[in-house]
Design a protein around this nucleic acid. Structure first.
Length: 526
RNA sequence: GCUCCCAUCGUCUAGUGGUCAGGACAUUUGGUUUUCAACUAAAAAACAGGGGUUCAAUUCUCCUUGGGAGUACCA
C-alpha cells in the first residue's frame, strides 16, 4: 500500500517550531517512501482560525521547501460528514446521547463493554483498588463514580467508563461481596438502571487495556478504568476534534500518522473510534517534542518560538530544515550537514530519538554559517542588495561596489542579518563607540600618523600591496611597531574593532572615503 | 490524586551484556593571521540514584527521583 501521511495544523497564528518539525518528519517519511504528503487544515475552531493564518501556513511551507500532494482539505467543510459518522455510531450503539446539566444533548463515544466488537483491547488480569467507604459507588450507563483515597485518607471523586470494570465486584470491610456487575449489566447498559452501593471498601475487576503499536515506542497501552466516555459531538452539534480528526484521516486514506507525543493520550481514544467506524487502523508514530532553551515546552510566550522568528533572524530555510531534522533524528553515521535530497534518502523512523530535544540556536547558527559559505557569490550579492535596500544608507548603491563588499564579507557572515552591520562601507556616518575610540585613538602619535597617511594616500595608486607598504612605512617612520597602527586605523575608518582585513577594506572603500574619514578622525577623535 | 511518555558530556546525539563510551555545537588553551571570522592542534566534559539477573550491566529488569503530557462540550 502506498504511504500517505498528513500535516494537520490548526491555523490560529504563526507556525510553531514544533509543528513545523512534525511536518518535516511527515514530509521526509513520505518522500523517502515515494508516498504522498497531504495537508489538512483543521480550522474547526472558528473563533481562532483566520484566513491570514492559513495564508501564513502555506507560505511558510513553501519557504522551507515542503511541497505537498493533492488539494488540501479543510476540516470545516467536512462537518456534515462528521455528523453522519456520529449518527452511524449512535445507530450501532458505539455512541449515545447525554446532556450534562441542563444543556443540549451531546454525543458521547461509548467505550465498549463487549470487547468482541473491537480489536486492540487486551486483558491484563484481575486487580483490586481501595475506595473510600463513605462515598457510595454509583453505576450507570455513563460510567462508574466512586471515591479513591488520598495519601491523607480523604476521598477523591473519580469517574471512569463502565467498560473499565469488567466482572466488577464491590467488596466491603468484612470481605463480603456487595455487588456483582454481571448480574445487572444489561439494564445498566440500556440506560434503564442506576445502581448505588454503599459501604464498599474495594473494587475487584478484570483490568482491560486499549493498546496500539507505535513505530518508535513499541506497544503502548492504557487501562480502560482510567478513561471516560468522551464527547464526540457537542450539544450545539459541532463535532469535536477526536471525531473530526479520525474521520478526516479515514477520508484522506492516511496510512501513517506521525505526530507529537503529546497526542499519545488522544491516540488511545482514536484507536477506539477508528475501529468503531470499522476503518482500518493506520500505523502510529509519536515523535518527541522540542523544548525551548530552558527545557520547557515551547509556548507562544517564548521568544523565537515560530518559524518566522528564525527567518527574521536571517536563518536560511535549508539550514533550518537540516537542523530541525537533526533534533530527534540522526543518520547511521556522523554526518550532520545534509541537504534536502540527502535527508530524504537517509530518513527512516527507526532512527528517531524518543526523548525530547532542546533547541540550540548556537548550533543552528553554526550550521547556517556552513550553508552561507556555499551560496554562489552572485546570489549572495543579490540577496544582500535586497536586504540593505531597506536601510537608509543602502538604497542606492553601485552594484559593482556592492559585489566587492559582498565578496569580501561572505566568508565571515553567518546570517543575512549581520549584513545590517555593514553600513560603514556605504556611509561616512560611523557608529563610533566612545570607549573604543578614546582608548585607541587618543594616544600620542596617532594624529601625526593619520596626517602622514593622508598625505601618502593622496598620491598613492590604490592597490593592495601599495596600501600595505604605505602603512608600514608610516608606522616605521613614527617609530611604532609594525601592525600597531592597524587597529586605530580600522576604528577611524569603520567605527568598529572587528571585520575583514583592514588593507582590503581600505582598498574597497577607495581613496576619497578613506581620506575623508581620516580627516574627520584627525579633527574630532584624536 | 490517577494514567501515559521520557532519562548518555552544558546542548544535539552515536553506541554496546565485556568499548580508552565516539562525533558535532558550545567552552578553554595553543598555532596561524594586521583585528574578527575561518582554519588548525589540543584540553575539559556524560551513562540520574538504588536494588535484581549475570562471571560481567551504561546496555536487560524492578523501584525511586526528576522532567513532560493527559485527565475539557480546546485542538
Amino acid at each position: 500500500m502506498d504511504v500517505r501521511v498528513r500535516f494537520a495544523p490548526s491555523p490560529t497564528g504563526q507556525i510553531h517550531i514544533g509543528n513545523i518539525r512534525t511536518a518535516i518528519f511527515n514530509w521526509l517519511y513520505a518522500r523517502h517512501n515515494n508516498g504522498k504528503f497531504l495537508i489538512r487544515v483543521e480550522d474547526t475552531d472558528r473563533e481562532r482560525s483566520t484566513q491570514e493564518a492559513i495564508d501564513i501556513l502555506f507560505s511558510e511551507l513553501k519557504w522551507i521547501g515542503l511541497n505537498y500532494d493533492e488539494t488540501p482539505i479543510y476540516q470545516s467543510k467536512q462537518i456534515e460528514h462528521h455528523r453522519e459518522q456520529a449518527e452511524k455510531l449512535l445507530d450501532n450503539k458505539h455512541a449515545y446521547k447525554f446532556a450534562k446539566g441542563e444543556g443540549d444533548e451531546a454525543v458521547l463515544f461509548n467505550i465498549p463493554w463487549d470487547d468482541n466488537t473491537l480489536k486492540n483491547i487486551s486483558t491484563s488480569g484481575q486487580i483490586e483498588i481501595s475506595i473510600h467507604p463513605d462515598i457510595p459507588v454509583k453505576i450507570c450507563k455513563q460510567g462508574l463514580f466512586y471515591a479513591s483515597i488520598s495519601n491523607k485518607g480523604k476521598p477523591i471523586p473519580t469517574e471512569a467508563c463502565l467498560a473499565g470494570f469488567k466482572d466488577l465486584s464491590i467488596i466491603d470491610s468484612n470481605n463480603q461481596c456487595l455487588f456483582q456487575i454481571n448480574d445487572e449489566i444489561q439494564p445498566i447498559l440500556n440506560g434503564e438502571k442506576t445502581c448505588e452501593i454503599k459501604n464498599g471498601q474495594r473494587l475487584r475487576f478484570l483490568r482491560r487495556e486499549v493498546y496500539f503499536d507505535d513505530l518508535i515506542k513499541g506497544r503502548l497501552s492504557k487501562p480502560l478504568d482510567s478513561m471516560k466516555d468522551f464527547v464526540i459531538v457537542r450539544g450545539n452539534g459541532s463535532p469535536v476534534f477526536h471525531l473530526a480528526n479520525v474521520c478526516d484521516d479515514i477520508l484522506q486514506n492516511i496510512t501513517h500518522i506521525i505526530r507529537g507525543d503529546d497526542h499519545i493520550e488522544n491516540t488511545y481514544r482514536h484507536t477506539l473510534i477508528f475501529q468503531a467506524i470499522d476503518a482500518e487502523l493506520p500505523s502510529f508514530t509519536h515523535i518527541p517534542m522540542i523544548t525551548n532553551e530552558c527545557g520547557k515546552p515551547y509556548s507562544k510566550r517564548d521568544g523565537d518560538a515560530f518559524l518566522s522568528d528564525l527567518r527574521d533572524m536571517g536563518y536560511l530555510p535549508e539550514a533550518i530544515l537540516n537542523y530541525l531534522t537533526l533534533l530527534g533524528w540522526s543518520p547511521d553515521d556522523d554526518t550532520e550537514k545534509m541537504g534536502q535530497k540527502e535527508l530524504i534518502s537517509r530518513f527512516t523512523l527507526d532512527r528517531v530519538q524518543n526523548s525530547p530535544a532542546k533547541m540550540d540556536q548556537k548550533k543552528l547558527l553554526n550550521l547556517n554559517g556552513q550553508y552561507m559559505e556555499e551560496i554562489p557569490p552572485e546570489e549572495f550579492s543579490q540577496h544582500v542588495t535586497e536586504i540593505i535596500s531597506d536601510q537608509s544608507w543602502g538604497n542606492s548603491v553601485d552594484p559593482d561596489y556592492l559585489d566587492d563588499v559582498a565578496k569580501l564579507m561572505q566568508s565571515r557572515t553567518k546570517t543575512y542579518n549581520q549584513v545590517q552591520d555593514w553600513s560603514y562601507f556605504f556611509t561616512d556616518n560611523l557608529n563610533f563607540d566612545e570607549k573604543i575610540t578614546n582608548r585607541h585613538l587618543q594616544k600620542p602619535g596617532i594624529k601625526e600618523a593619520f596626517s602622514l597617511l593622508v598625505t601618502s594616500f593622496s598620491d598613492l595608486t590604490f592597490e593592495l600591496n601599495h596600501i600595505e607598504s604605505c602603512i608600514l612605512d608610516v608606522t616605521e617612520s613614527i617609530g611604532v611597531k609594525p601592525g600597531k597602527l592597524n587597529l586605530p586605523l580600522r576604528i577611524a575608518l569603520t567605527g568598529t574593532n572587528v571585520g575583514a582585513g583592514i588593507y582590503e577594506i581600505i582598498l574597497i572603500l577607495g581613496k576619497d572615503k578613506v581620506i575623508r574619514r581620516l580627516d574627520y578622525a584627525i579633527n574630532n577623535l584624536t
